[in-house]
Amino acid sequence: MGKVNVGIAGIGWWSGVLAAVIENCDTLDLRACYTRSKDKAATFAAKFNCQAVDSYEAMLALDDLDGVILTTPNSAHRAGAEAAARAGKHVFVEKPISNTLEDGRAMIAACEASGVVLAVGHSYRRHGALRHLRRLIDDGELGRVSLAEGVFSNDNGLKLKPGLWRSDPAEIPGGCLMQIGIHQIDNLLYLLGPVSDVQAYFNRLETEPDVEDVTAVLMRFESGAVGYVAADYISARRFTLAVHGTKANAYFDMDNDGLRLQRTGETKPLPVEYEPIDHLRAELEDFANAILTGAGPEIDGHRAMVPLAIVLAAGRSSAEGRSIALTELLPD
């Protein structure tokens, strides 16, 4: 199996993280990079041994380029994806797929019309603990799942200053739920399946820019289970999951206790071993595999529309003070 040559558009902290991951991928090579700052592009190119190009159009014109990785602001995803599709290049875009359902649909249509892959970067579901937890659920080890909780917090909101795209409420509708909480929304979708409706509360307490820094959303799943996701942009880092079932509860703390299981009748949860997986490498190699084999990526454009719709429904719920059926946003 050959390698897929990709270019990264939009150079910042996260593009560097992904470029470092690509260096360890068996199926990807970083061919080129582009950002508006030539100095920044040159530094990035030297560090990751790729070509700095003068424009996004120049990147798309490279004959040996197979695909692009878009780490641009959310509002730029549509234009970047549509241009890549017109050039016959495959597209990997960071989450969320876009800020709006209209843009997401346009990206899907453009990539499908050109016959190119559209993959979206919801990576945490590929973490070894999440994969193992999904197997426990599928095998009936937890019994009937009734409740799931996902929390993602960090203090990045305390550092936000006006003038950055992450500080612009037009760029981040839903505030920290769009920026970090969407990861846990996707995790619960992966573990529990489709959602029927949501109820949410958003607030801004401490961030200097007008961005919601604390959010909570309740999700009712079609299975009857209830899920809860909280995102907090003004407190210490926490990434935890809890899944409750009639036979056992499972707990996952990414930074501390790993995966633990407490079976009914036991007094405390016990550690569970699982196979470690580099979730970022797994998502990028999934993108490459989709290109090389023709198989669809795990998170294509259609699947990525669901966590986006939940964030947007949560925002509507908080503003209007009512539960929002997901069919209000995704009637199909």
Rank of each mutant, 00 (worst) to 15 (best):
L259H: 04
N256V: 13
E266N: 04
Q262R: 14
A230K: 08
Y233P: 00
S235P: 02
P269H: 07
A250M: 05
L270D: 08
E266I: 00
T240E: 11
A230Q: 14
V214C: 09
A225G: 09
N256P: 00
Y228D: 00
A230L: 12
V243G: 08
R263T: 05
S235W: 05
R260K: 13
G227P: 02
F221E: 04
V226L: 14
L261V: 06
V217D: 08
R263G: 01
D232Q: 04
G258N: 02
D255M: 12
R260N: 04
L259A: 06
T240R: 13
R220E: 11
E266C: 02
A236F: 11
E266G: 00
L259F: 06
G265N: 02
T264P: 00
G245I: 10
T264H: 06
A236R: 14
D257M: 09
V217C: 14
L270S: 12
L270W: 01
A231S: 15
A248M: 07
D232G: 01
I234P: 04
V214A: 10
A248N: 07
L259N: 03
A242H: 09
T267V: 06
L218G: 05
A231W: 02
K247E: 15
D213K: 01
L218Q: 12
V226D: 06
T246I: 08
F252E: 00
T246C: 06
A230D: 01
G245P: 07
G265M: 01
N256G: 04
E222Q: 15
Y251L: 12
D253P: 05
R220C: 07
A248Q: 07
G258K: 02
A236G: 14
M219C: 09
S223V: 11
M254D: 12
D213Q: 05
L259M: 06
V214D: 12
A250H: 05
V229P: 04
F239S: 10
T246W: 10
E222L: 12
L270E: 14
S223P: 12
V214G: 01
A231N: 06
Y251M: 05
P269T: 06
A231G: 15
A248F: 07
N256R: 15
S235N: 13
E266W: 04
V214P: 00
G258A: 03
D253I: 10
Y228F: 14
D255T: 06
Y233C: 04
T240M: 07
M219S: 07
R220F: 00
G265S: 02
P269E: 08
A242L: 04
Q262A: 03
Y228P: 00
Q262Y: 02
V217M: 11
K247L: 15
T215E: 11
T240Y: 09
E222H: 09
A248P: 03
Y233T: 00
K247R: 15
M254Y: 12
A242D: 11
L261R: 03
N256Y: 11
G224V: 12
T215R: 01
A250S: 11
A250N: 05
G258L: 03
Y251P: 06
K247T: 01
A230G: 09
G258W: 02
T246L: 08
A248H: 07
N256H: 14
A242E: 15
V217H: 08
D232M: 03
E266D: 14
